[in-house]
């Protein structure tokens, strides 16, 4: 899968949850990816360099990995 596209998607999800506050935004972003992404997409985003993600998306991906 195209890593850049997945990073953009994750960032986009995070940006739409930011208004909820950091903690909620991270949790909601992680939950959204868990509920709606196919396993290969999840695997790919986990394999991406977290530095390329926004802080909320990055934390959400870490939460997913954990």
């Amino acid at each position: 899968m195209d890593g850049a596209k997945l990073r953009r998607m994750a960032d986009q999800i995070a940006a739409n949850f930011v208004a909820l506050g950091e903690e909620q935004a991270i949790a909601q972003t992680a939950e959204h990816i868990r509920l709606f992404w196919d396993p290969r997409m999840k695997a790919q985003i986990l394999a991406e360099d977290p530095a390329g993600l926004s802080p909320v998306a990055c934390a959400a991906v870490r939460q997913l990995a954990g």
Binding site: R8, Q12, A15, N16, V18, A19, L20
Partner: peptide, 8 residues
């Protein structure tokens, strides 16, 4: 809450 996020 729906924050306006401009399109890319």
């Amino acid at each position: 809450v729906t924050e306006y996020v401009p399109t890319d």
